[in-house]
């Protein structure tokens, strides 16, 4: 769940402000305590969040990392590329505000800026849905349409976004091919079970064949108690099987289900949940193109102090 930072973190009362690249007005998060992660790579960074297997947490990861990035002050556009079974709007609590989708943009019923749904909690986060449920996206230029979208977002007047996150559908079908088309890097979400790992390995192979070399993985739903009892593969075992750098390890947390039902992503919880902290750390590493250097293995009994006898 945590990586030891390679260099000690200096504690800044006044955070470093990044040099403004454009003169456009951009909503910055309030960095009151600590430093801001340094954005690595060229913007916009187009990241596809994929897995092979369904139900491993792609959409949850997209929502939480997207909002974490927005909290860090980066401009983020999340694209729900799941054509038939979109859910990202539900997780973000924006389901009532999606009036137009990419299909309407392609048809000429609305402009692209009208289809982008701006999150009111963090105005530098925008959602774009590919299509409404039960509507069809023509496969003939599905991938091309996403490339046009990325180009249009790059050239828009209020400035290009820092991150474009694409929530990929499950499987390696046409939806997957469409979703990975404009991506430069990928985040592979997997759980520490053998079915998910096999699919993840295959998807990694397809991504590498497609030319996406920057692939990092997030291991989701890790239970340290099961790892300790050797009922679950450890994160290091997973890494040994896939050979991918670790972006994050998300512990199994019932708070995830609660936040999903509420439409309020986990990272906005106060006080933060364990999984929310892990997502925040993963977002930080994504910004800095960093990977984990150490992983949490098992829970240790907490050392009790001298005054613990008295309840201290």
């Amino acid at each position: 769940m945590i990586s030891l930072h390679p260099k000690p973190l200096p504690f800044h009362f006044f955070p470093k402000q990044p040099k403004p690249k454009t003169l456009t007005l951009r909503v910055q998060s309030l960095l009151q305590y600590n430093r801001k992660p340094q954005l690595a790579g060229d913007t916009p960074r187009v990241v596809v969040i994929t897995s092979g297997k369904g139900g491993v947490g792609k959409t949850t990861t997209t929502a939480n990392i997207g909002l974490s990035l927005a909290r860090l002050g980066f401009s983020v556009v999340a694209i729900d590329a799941d054509v038939g079974l979109r859910n990202l709007d539900l997780l973000l609590g924006l389901e009532n505000r999606v009036n137009y989708t990419v299909v309407e943009v392609l048809n000429g019923d609305c402009r692209l800026d009208q289809a982008l749904v701006r999150d009111k909690r963090w105005s530098n986060f925008e959602l774009l849905c590919i299509s409404k449920p039960r509507s069809k996206l023509p496969l003939g230029f599905g991938g091309k349409a996403l490339i046009w979208l990325v180009d249009a977002l790059k050239n828009r007047e209020e400035g290009k976004p820092d991150f474009i996150l694409i929530d990929c559908p499950a499987g390696i079908d046409a939806g997957f091919i469409t979703a990975i088309t404009p991506a430069n890097e990928a985040v592979l979400v997997t759980t520490p079970d053998i079915t998910s790992l096999r699919d993840a390995d295959r998807v990694t192979g397809l991504l590498e064949c497609d030319g996406i070399r920057d692939i990092k993985m997030i291991v989701n739903r890790v239970r340290t108690d099961m790892i300790k009892g050797e009922d679950m593969m450890s994160v290091l075992d997973v890494q040994e099987m896939l050979g991918l750098p670790l972006l994050g390890v998300i512990p199994d947390d019932p708070e995830v289900i609660r936040s999903t039902n509420r439409g309020y992503p986990l990272v906005l919880n106060k006080p933060p949940a364990l999984a929310g902290l892990a997502f925040e750390q993963a977002a930080w590493r994504l910004v800095e193109q960093d990977s984990m250097k150490a992983v949490m293995m098992e829970e240790e009994p907490k050392k009790r102090g001298f005054f613990s006898f008295f309840g201290g």
Partner: peptide, 10 residues
């Protein structure tokens, strides 16, 4: 909660 850390060896 206190967790034991293990270094990544990849």
């Amino acid at each position: 909660k206190v967790y034991r850390l293990a270094p990544v060896t990849l």
